[in-house]
Each structure stands twice: as C-alpha cells, then as structure tokens.
Design a protein around this nucleic acid. Structure first.
Length: 475
RNA sequence: GCCCCGGUAGCUCAGUCCGGCAGAGCGGCGGGCUGCAGACCCGUAGGUCCCGGGUUCAAAUCCCGGCCGGGGCUCCA
C-alpha cells in the first residue's frame, strides 16, 4: 500500500514498525466553537484509513487529542462568562467536546484508541519542558515563559520546506519580548490575571500548543510510531515544531514515520473561514443529509487535493447512497431466490479489484467510490435479474464482498432494520404479490403506495418484488 | 517576497508519479421495459485537458516560461 509522506514528499510503501499493528496520531480540535465540514473531512479520512488497515488485518491504535486549554478557549469563555470566566471556562471545551463525540457518532466514525486532553497531561508537559531546558534546547524568559530555541535543532524548517531566513525576512513573525529569535515558540506560557493556570518551576501558566501533541502522542503510542497527521495547515509551524521538540528530547530524526495531511475544503472557491462567513458546520449538514452522504461526498475528492464543498455535491452523494442501499437491501432479499448452481458468471471481482487497487495507491477514494457505486449498479441492473441463475453461495459471496467494500468507506452503516418492520413489510409484499397474480391491481398499487409513504420502496422484477428502505436519521 | 497545492465535460472528480485512442458518476436530452410505477434498462449530446514554447514517432502526462485560483509563512482541519 502506497501512502504520500509529507516528510519525504513522495508516495512510500506503508510498513509499520510492528507487523500487524499500526499506531497513529491525529491532531485533534481545539474545542472553542462548532465543528465544521473541514474538520469532518480530516476525521472521516483517518477513519477510512483506519477501517482499511483493519480490513487488511491490522490492529489500529489511533489517538486523537483535544487541545482543551488555549487562548481561543479563554477568549471564548471571557466573551460568554465575563468576570466568571475564570471559574467557568471549562464549560466551553466540555460543550464542544461533547458535540464532537455526538457528530462522530452521526458520521459513523469509529472510536479512537484514546482521546487525551492537554489538561490531563500538564505534569508531563512540565517535565518535558524541564528536560528541554536542561538539555539546552529551551530557555526561560524574564516573565517566566519558557521558549524552545529553534536554532538549536539541526535542519529546522526542512520538514515543511521553509527556510529560516525566509521566515524571519517574511517579517510577519511577531517578535515577542523575551524571545531570542522570533521563530522560537513557547513550551510554557506565563499566566495573565483572570486566566487558568497550572504550577511549574518557572511561573504559573499553561503548556504551549506544539509541545502537547508530542507529549501525548508518544505517551500513548511509544516512540517512534507509524503515522501522524491532520489538516494541511498544520504542516507549519505545528508539525515542524513537534518534530523539533522530539529531535531535541529523544535525539531521533523523526518520531513518526509517515506524515499525512488532508487538504482544504473550499466554498465557492475560497477557503472556509470565519472572517468570510462561509463556514459550514457539521451540525448544519447532518441536519439535512445522512452521515453516509457526507462521507461519500468527502470520498469523491482525493484527500490531499483541495476540494470544493457544496450542497449540490451532497445532493448527488445522497442519491448515490440511496442506490447503495437499494443494491444492499434487494440483494439481501434476492439471496433467497438464488438457485443451486452457477449457470452465469458474475463480474464482481472486477469491481472489487479496482476498488482495492485504488485504495492501495495513496487512497484514491474517488476511484474507489466509483467502483463501489459501479458494483451497486451492477447488482441492481444484472445480479437481481438473474439471481435464479446463480448459486446461493455466489449470491451470498457477492453480498459479502459488496458490504466489505462499503464498510471501508463507511457508507452503508444503517443496514440494520427493526425486525418487526421487516416482518410487517414482508407479509405486505407477499399479500401484494397474490393480488397482482389475481390482477387486483388497484389493491396491489394501494399497498405499494402506502408502503412508499412509510419509506419502503417496491421494485418489481417480473413476478418477484424486492424492496428497499428509505432510511431516515433512524427508524 | 519565499514555499506548497490546484486548473481535464454543466457539477464533483479519476487519469499526470510510470508518455500510447481524453474517462467515470451525477446532471441534460431521446427512447425502452412495465398491468401501472420504479432511485430499472438502452442510447445520446457535451472537451482550447488554463496558455505558450521545448523534448519525443507520440504529451493531459516529462522539461522550461507564464496566467488564473486557493493556501501556508500569524491561531486555523
């Protein structure tokens, strides 16, 4: 399996340090506001990545953190709570973390191995900072903040392709008082009145952002681990700085082997941003579309490429999801009509092979989605029509291959139908079949129409009838 | 200014790494199957592969130079 590694700027064969075990870390959210579809793209991508590795037999340990203390959270708390912010600031991250988990569920994202939070790992971060000061990679500023000295690390900037001189010359780096070099970054930030703080040898304060992820990832995954990723905007400075810290602390060249970055989403050609007012929240999308439709929409673009996000795209994806369910539901029913032996050859392998080949090549999910959809259409247009010419084993194997593919992308997650509903529909469909035989079409049509009203759609294949459920958020 | 990414059908995108007849789905249009219906079937239109040069028997693909758009260099998925 090939995966593009930002660190080497090329596709590389994916090989884990421990055979059969894949360990990865995804930089999580700063929970100070609603999660949007850009976040969703990242977490859904890593969920597909993880599902595929699991399908290949790996045990996957995926860690996603929460930066639950940060300037943005403090500012948000001040806005909301005024002078009570100091006492109540934790309500902000708690609220958005809860929302994050809720949306994960609705997006069918599998739970991570661990969800560490900064506030639960402050002691380790203080210990790391002490060690980095002792080793001479960090220094204490007059106000008690501790800065990491980027000049002490060999080849700083190489990972992200930045040249130190260019960065400094860019002159957009705010030279803060107390920093030796404007590129130096805080490992420990000194406290200001009214802000939350933790104890440290230097001053009351809180950990710096870049340090967090190194501490928490290596704590849960060991060193080195297999893959580390997030949104493309994290390449610099966040990941560059994480690598610098790990170099200094462990003396290793890189603490993660593959660096995977997910491209931006644009809306009407521009990056989603608060200032442009074009942010689309996951709440908004998932109130109108299924989680599978959004997952499929994401899959229709390659993860590294910028992708234009629109509701038109979601409409298309939702239609495709309906077709995917039609194929699943009706093939499930058709298995019962399968014959004893194979008198026809099916072409299922063609789709499956192309599907997996696309994923093997740097997760070309647009191609994979196309193949899955192609198989669904093949099932509907061909398999259902000649199900009595294939064996039960073949029918079941086709169904299994189809669902295995769908499960990698996570686009057929509401297969389960309540048993009572299933039984009621089945007997109604049988009753209608008898009516059709007796040419009592008015009554037969009435049943079909009433079933349609409750979201069950009937499709006649000659004398046989298969049906599909129009899933809503839930039954 | 420096760095990265993108530009292929109305839309979303494959194809570019590794040169070999320009593709898929959706959407459009026309027809069909069907007792009727179908998110079913068949057919069809639709292209300056951003532009210009170069290399080559052959370029969407490789090289050079541009243009346009997005992003990073400062918190950002």
């Amino acid at each position: 399996m090939l995966i593009y590694n930002t660190a080497t700027r090329q596709k590389e064969e994916f090989v884990t340090y421990t055979p059969g075990l894949a360990r990865g870390y995804v930089c999580g959210i700063t929970p100070y506001d609603h999660v949007h579809v850009g976040h969703g793209r990242v977490y859904v991508f890593f969920d597909v990545f993880r599902r595929y590795l699991e399908a290949k037999g790996y045990e996957v340990r995926l860690v996603i953190n929460f930066t639950d203390i940060d300037d943005k959270i403090i500012n948000r708390a001040k806005e909301e709570f005024g002078h009570e912010a100091y006492r109540r600031w934790r309500e902000v991250p708690e609220r958005y973390i809860a929302e994050f988990f809720e949306l994960n569920k609705r997006l069918f994202i599998k739970p991570a191995y661990a969800y560490p939070r900064v506030t639960e790992n402050v002691e380790e971060m203080v210990a790391w900072t002490s060690a980095l000061v002792e080793k001479g990679f960090a220094y204490v500023a007059p106000d008690g903040s501790v800065y990491f000295e980027v000049g002490k690390v060999p080849r700083y900037g190489e990972f992200s392709g930045q040249k130190i001189e260019e960065l400094v010359a860019g002159a957009r780096v705010e030279p803060e008082p107390g920093k030796k070099n404007p590129l130096d970054f805080a490992l420990w930030k000194s406290w200001s009145p009214g802000e939350p703080w933790w104890n440290s040898p230097w001053c009351p304060g809180r950990p710096g952002w870049h340090l967090e992820c190194v501490v928490m990832s290596t704590k849960h995954l060991g060193i080195p681990f297999d893959f580390h990723g997030g949104g493309a905007d994290l390449i610099f400075p966040h990941h560059e700085n994480e690598i610098a810290i790990a170099k200094a602390y462990f003396g290793v060249d890189n603490f993660a082997r593959y660096w995977i970055h997910v491209g931006y989403l644009t809306v009407r050609g521009e990056k989603m941003s608060k200032s442009l007012g074009n942010v689309i929240t996951l709440n908004e999308v998932l109130s109108k579309y299924s989680g599978e439709a959004l997952r499929l929409a994401y899959a229709m673009g390659h993860y590294r490429k910028p992708m234009e996000f629109s509701f038109e795209l979601l409409d298309q994806a939702e239609d495709m999801v309906k077709t995917l369910y039609t194929a699943y539901d009706e093939l499930s029913q058709a298995v019962a009509d399968a014959g004893e032996e194979d008198r026809e050859r099916l072409e299922v392998d063609k789709y499956a092979e192309a599907f997996y080949a696309a994923l093997e090549d740097d997760f070309t999910t647009p191609e994979a989605a196309q193949q899955l959809y192609g198989l669904a259409r093949y099932i509907i247009s061909t398999v259902l029509h000649k199900v009595d010419k294939i064996s039960r084993e073949t029918a079941l194997a086709t169904l299994r291959r189809y669902t295995e593919m769908a499960d990698v992308l996570g686009v057929l997650e509401r297969r389960q139908v309540p048993k009572e509903l299933e039984e009621a529909v089945k007997s109604l469909v049988e009753a209608r079949a008898r009516l059709r035989q007796e040419k009592q079409y008015a009554l037969a049509d009435y049943i079909r129409q009433r079933l349609a009203q409750i979201g069950v759609e009937l499709h006649d294949f000659g004398p046989r009838t298969y049906y599909t459920y129009r899933r809503r958020q839930s039954f």
